[in-house]
Design a protein around this nucleic acid. Structure first.
Length: 568
DNA sequence: TTAGGGTTAG
């Protein structure tokens, strides 16, 4: 009966059985005690499990293993790790159950030192070939960012199953390595294993990081063919993959086809709308969610506030920020950052500063960074310099504020100040992250770096961009050289501007794709104002839809305008 | 009587 209650997580009935048993002739039975411990652990009641454990007159290896497993499954790694040496001191030998549970806990440990020690123990006592221990080792190493070690343990596993494959694929997914995750899925299929919901949610998660729409569609089609159902975990990952790969339409379709919708489903859709600049749709959907009685969490509010900020919905954003209290959701630093962003983008820089000064939490580098970004947008040098100083005080290693500050000076043509900031960056060893763009052509990813002359098709690409540039200048494009960072004359600044990575990627895509097809480009940093303007004109002059994903959001360029309404 | 793998925000 206790086992039945444990399986069904029926804790109230379990407690009744417990009370009865502990008054009966079995009250000193160790086996019964172990079963009760397991029931408490599975129901998440580790305090009660611990109380019983401390009161038990006699314990055995299973008792300790059950406690370690309980702590591990309830995300209480310290509890699991503390028990292990005590268990050894008692002279109890751990078995494969103990080791796999402890390894799971060690995946969440601050360093990999204990994990490596336990790995050595497993080797010494011959447990590494055990399926459970081996899979747990793979998982532990991937969580400590040691995917090579995980891969070699996985390769040495003679008997593999779906779980061992999933542990490795999830590892690649957490690292954002979509290509590797996909390769492993293909290998898994070749080896004759059937992917599970765990596999699909990991792979979709990995592909959402790389934004590979075609590959994502292939995996989705495979899942449908093999009869996979759209239950929450996998459906939410699929929805998110479509939203992050640039197809909000497919994300919506998945949302409506989900068998059940939980909070993550709603949050993922809202995030998708926010990233694609569908601010009003995001707000409408959020209102629908509230009408349906679904309790929002901090992530929901963050999505909605972001959407309001990006869509310029000033009043709505402030209203929803106040609404958080009504729903008992605490406003964290990130929510405050969004409000600074909201006010700042709307040009209310003084109000944004006042908001920072009056907010109940201590301002962080991110808060001042949001104000600095707004100052960049509205070319407010004085407040921008003040915000940049605050960011730099709080986070001297971040190159972001100095880059933004030098941009502010560059926009105003204050080249002397630009040089000073750049010297400061050199002095502090701060480097700007190099800008890269990627474009998928026929399932192959092509990367472009700003001002890079080494591409094999470099000449053709530049020639193509010159043609595009001439066409868009005819219909009104004027290069905005304020986005060039360094000291140079006008002609050189204009020439540098023409070699931004996203422009090179667009030129290459124009060379390699049929007329009229949609072009999808990804960028590792925020798109610059000049490229944004050039892409708008290009979408009209060339009659092409261009979808650009940058670090913050998607830009859909069509017929001379962008989905962000120039407000990003 | 005891075990290993998955989704959303910044």
């Amino acid at each position: 009966m206790l086992r039945r209650c444990t399986q069904l997580r029926k804790i109230n009935e379990g407690r009744l059985v417990c009370a009865h048993v502990l008054k009966s002739m079995f009250k000193h039975d160790r086996l019964i005690h172990n079963t009760i411990l397991n029931m408490y652990a599975k129901c998440g009641l580790m305090d009660e499990a611990r109380k019983l454990f401390d009161e038990m007159p006699v314990t055995d290896m299973v008792t300790w293993t059950t406690m370690i497993t309980g702590y591990s499954q309830n995300n209480q790694s310290d509890g699991a790790v503390a028990l292990f040496p005590q268990m050894l001191r008692m002279g109890l030998q751990p078995n494969e159950f103990t080791l796999s549970s402890l390894l799971k806990a060690l995946g969440f440990w601050p360093s990999d030192k204990c994990g490596r020690q336990l790995h050595a123990y497993c080797l010494k006592y011959g447990y590494c070939s055990n399926l459970y221990v081996g899979s747990a080792l793979v998982d532990m190493y991937t969580r400590h960012d040691r995917i090579d070690e995980a891969q070699s343990i996985f390769c040495l596993l003679v008997n593999k199953n779906e779980v061992s494959w999933n542990a490795l694929i999830a590892g690649y997914s957490r690292k954002g390595e979509g290509e590797h995750a996909l390769c492993m899925l293909q290998e898994m299929l070749r080896a004759g294993f059937e992917p599970t919901h765990f596999t699909y949610s990991s792979v979709f998660g990995a592909l959402s990081a790389t934004g590979s729409l075609e590959q994502g569609k292939w995996v989705h089609a495979h899942m449908i063919k093999s009869g996979g159902q759209l239950i929450e975990f996998v459906g939410n990952a699929l929805l998110d993959m479509y939203a992050k790969s640039g197809s909000i339409e497919d994300a919506e379709k998945v949302f409506y086809r989900l068998l059940r919708r939980d909070l993550v489903s709603w949050n993922s859709l809202l995030t998708g709308y926010a990233k694609h600049g569908h601010g009003r749709e995001c707000v409408r959907k959020f209102e629908e969610m509230l009408r349906r009685g679904i309790q929002p969490n901090d992530i929901t509010f963050l999505c909605v506030l972001n959407a309001c900020s990006h869509a310029g919905l000033l009043d709505e954003g402030q209203y929803y920020f106040r609404l958080m209290k009504k729903y008992n959701v605490e406003a964290r630093v990130v929510h405050h950052v969004t409000i600074v962003d909201l006010l700042g983008r709307a040009g209310l820089l003084d109000r944004a500063k006042k908001f920072i000064e009056e907010m109940p939490i201590e301002p962080t580098a991110e808060i001042w960074g949001a104000l600095l970004g707004a100052c960049r947008m509205h070319k407010d040098m004085k407040l921008g310099a003040y915000a940049a100083e605050r960011v730099f005080e709080l986070n001297p290693n971040d190159s972001g504020p100095l880059v933004l500050l030098s941009n502010i000076y560059a926009s105003a043509g204050r080249w002397g100040e630009v040089v000073k900031v750049r010297r400061m960056m050199q002095k502090n060893g701060v480097k700007k992250e190099p800008a890269c763009s990627w474009v998928d052509i026929e399932n192959k990813v092509h990367m472009f770096v700003a001002n890079d002359d080494s591409h094999p098709h470099g000449k053709e690409i530049r020639k193509m961009w010159e043609e595009v540039s001439a066409k868009i200048k005819e219909i009104g494009y004027v290069p905005d050289t304020s986005h060039v960072l360094f000291f140079a004359d006008k002609q050189e600044r204009e020439s540098r501007l023409q070699h931004h990575s996203e422009k090179l990627a667009l030129a290459f895509a124009l060379l390699k794709t049929p007329p009229g097809s949609t072009i999808r480009i990804k960028k590792n940093i925020r798109v610059c104002g000049d490229c944004h303007s050039a892409f708008k004109f290009a979408s009209k002059a060339l009659d092409r839809e261009i979808i650009l994903r940058d670090t913050n959001r998607f830009h859909h360029f069509h017929d001379g305008s962008c989905s962000c309404g120039d407000y990003w």
